[in-house]
Design a protein around this nucleic acid. Sequence first.
DNA 1: TTAATAATCCATCAAATGATGGAAACATTA
DNA 2: TAATGTTTCCATCATTTGATGGATTATTAA
Lengths: 219, 219
Amino acid sequence: MPSPLEKARKYPDSNKARILSAARRLFGEHGFQGTTTRMIANAVGIDISTLYYHWGEKADLYEAVIIDLNEGIEAQFKIIERLARGRSLADRLDIAMDVMCDYLHDTPDVSNLLLLGYFSKSKTEVSLDEKVAGHIANIAIAMGLAIDKQHVTLQAKARIMTLWNAVLNFIFGESFFRPILGVDKTAYLDVVKETLKFLLIPAFTGRSGDNGSKLPENR
Amino acid sequence: MPSPLEKARKYPDSNKARILSAARRLFGEHGFQGTTTRMIANAVGIDISTLYYHWGEKADLYEAVIIDLNEGIEAQFKIIERLARGRSLADRLDIAMDVMCDYLHDTPDVSNLLLLGYFSKSKTEVSLDEKVAGHIANIAIAMGLAIDKQHVTLQAKARIMTLWNAVLNFIFGESFFRPILGVDKTAYLDVVKETLKFLLIPAFTGRSGDNGSKLPENR
DNA sequence: TTAATAATCCATCAAATGATGGAAACATTA
DNA sequence: TAATGTTTCCATCATTTGATGGATTATTAA
C-alpha cells in the first residue's frame, strides 16, 4: 500500500499533489500559524473542503510537507557523498558547500521550513530533531570528520551545524540580507559561497580561504 | 515630551511596562502571528482592553517591542567597542564573540525577535533592515575591518553577518540544537563560543583556532 | 472635598479560521 | 446501463481573535 505522499508524487497533476506543493510554499513563506487552509486552497484553486478531504486537518498536512522535505534533503546528501568520496578534505568541503548552496537556493522552501521548524515552540511538530541529527552525522561522515554515525564528536557536530544553519539563514533571509549587502540575485549566491568557504576552509585545513576569490573587493 | 517607551522604562512596575515586557517575551516565543493580545494580557493579569488602551493595536505594540530591542543591542555594541579598542585583531574577535554570546544568552528574546524579523515576510514590520545594516557596520569598525561606516566592504559585511546570525541561531534554537549535541545548559554556551571562534579566528588571522580549547574531545 | 483625568474592566462585535455534513458531479467497473 | 466508489463544492458551525464603547474605579489637581 503506497503512502499518501507516494501517491501524491506519482500523480503530480492531481489536486492532492498540488495541495501539497502549495502548502509547502505557503508554510515556508508564512509559517504554520501564518498560513490558513483557505490560503492554500485558494492558491490551488479549489474549495477548502477538498483540502480537508485529501489531507485531513491542517497539522496533518504540515506533517506531510515536512516528511516530503526531509526525503529531498536526504537525497541531496547522497549526491554530496558520492561526489566527495576519495577527494581531499579541502575539496570535500568545497564540494559540499557548492552542492548545498545550489540545492537550497533552487528550492528555498527547504530552508524556510527547516528554520521555522527549529524555532517554533509549538507542540504540533514532527520530530525534526532526529532527522536533523541524522543529517549532521551524514555530513560529518561524508567530510571524513567521523568514521560512522556513532562516532561524531561534539565539536564536529557543532561546526557542521553552524555552517548548515548559515546556508539556511542566507537563503531564507535573502530578501532581508541581500539589500544590506547591495548585490543582485546572482551575485548573492556567490558572496554566500565565498563567505562560507572563507570561514570553513582555513578552520578545517589550516590554510587561508582568501585565495581563489573571484569577487571584486569593492563596496 | 517623553516617548511611550521612555515612560514605560521609567516606571517598570506600571502595567504599561509590564505589557511591553510580556509582549517581548511572547512575540519572541511564538512570533507575531502566533501571539494573541489575549495571551499577553493574560500573562500580565489584565484585561485586553487595558492593553489596547496603552499601546493601541497589536502591530503598534510589536513595533514598540522592536524599537526597545534595538536600543538594547546598540548599547551592547558600545560596550564591545570600548573593550576592544586598542587590542589586537585576534583579541578583538575573541572579546566580541564572548560579549555577544553572553548578552544574547542572557536575553534570549533578542535573538528570537531578530530572527523572526529577518524571516517574516509580513508587511507590518518595522524597518529592521536599516538597523541591522547599522549593527553590522558598527561591528566591522569595532573589529578594525573598516575605518568608517561608509567604507565597509561587501566581504566584511557578509562575514560579520554570518557569525552574528550564527549566534542568534544557536541561542534561539537552543531547545532544538542542545539535545542534538547532548550537552547541558552551561556547557552549551561554551560549545557555541568555541565553535564560533574555531571558524572565526583562523579565517581572519590566519592561525588555528583549536588551541586554548577547554572542552574535552569526547562524544 | 470636588472636579477632572487616567486606568481598568465588562460586554460585545465583526471578521477570520479550522473543520464538517451532505448534496452534486465525475469516474470506474460490472 | 446500473451500481459503486471517488472527488469536488456549497452551506454552515463553533471558536478564536483583533478591536471598541461605555461604565466603573483609582489617581491627581484645584
